[in-house]
């Protein structure tokens, strides 16, 4: 499958009340301090739009976003350029980047522990209507990669995977895991630590 525009979003937990503009200085500081292991370019503020990409940390390989699409806040990362490995490997790498950013935000001193992510709910999406239209065929083709990722995150657990059926939207599946695992623990699992 010729696909690299993949993304993962972890949803914010209950009680997160941080206003979107408060993420601006944090992302700028991440750029200053080269906090993430990739080329970080800029911060884009879309806090004024409803249920949108919120605040973006634009990187060369992909974008990080305190995303409110679907009226649900979360931290999303999606790749823009091809990475090494097959689709399964890329999905693992993308999820690891998302979890790393989630973990950093949870530990961000500015937010004093007010940012939390649910470790039992995530979204996987493909930003590519040519190679991954929102169809059952795509779901079937991507299923091994998705199962591989979920096996790493939730070993032994049975996850519920539901495709968002709207044909006009990009291919998206919502995942409900059997247990709420802290994102720090998920990060360790995906890294094999």
């Amino acid at each position: 499958m010729n696909l690299h525009r993949l993304g993962v979003k972890f949803f914010a937990g209950d009680g997160a009340t941080i206003a979107l503009p408060e993420f601006l200085p944090v992302f700028h500081r991440w750029i200053q301090q080269s906090v993430l292991d990739e080329l970080l370019l800029d911060v884009a503020d879309y806090s004024h739009v409803h249920a949108g990409p919120g605040v973006l940390l634009v990187a060369h390989e992909g974008n990080y976003s305190v995303d409110e699409t679907g009226n649900r806040r979360g931290l999303a990362y999606y790749a823009k350029h091809p990475q090494s490995g097959d689709v399964a490997a890329m999905l693992l790498a993308i999820c690891a980047k998302t979890l790393r950013a989630c973990h950093l935000l949870e530990r961000e001193p500015t937010f004093a522990g007010k940012v939390k992510f649910s470790g039992d709910q995530l979204q996987i999406f493909a930003n590519d209507r040519l190679n991954a239209p929102n169809t059952e065929a795509t779901a079937t083709a991507l299923r091994p990669a998705i199962d591989g990722l979920l096996a790493k995150l939730y070993p032994g657990g049975k996850c519920e995977v539901v495709r968002v059926p709207d044909a006009k939207e990009r291919f998206t599946v919502n995942v409900k895991a059997p247990a709420d695992v802290p994102v720090g623990e998920l990060l360790k699992r995906i890294r094999g630590e």
Binding site: Y46, H48, V49, A51, P53
Partner: peptide, 12 residues
């Protein structure tokens, strides 16, 4: 549109 911006979801 605030600042002329509309999300892709809103546009659809």
């Amino acid at each position: 549109l605030p600042l002329g911006d509309i999300t892709c979801w809103q546009m659809r």
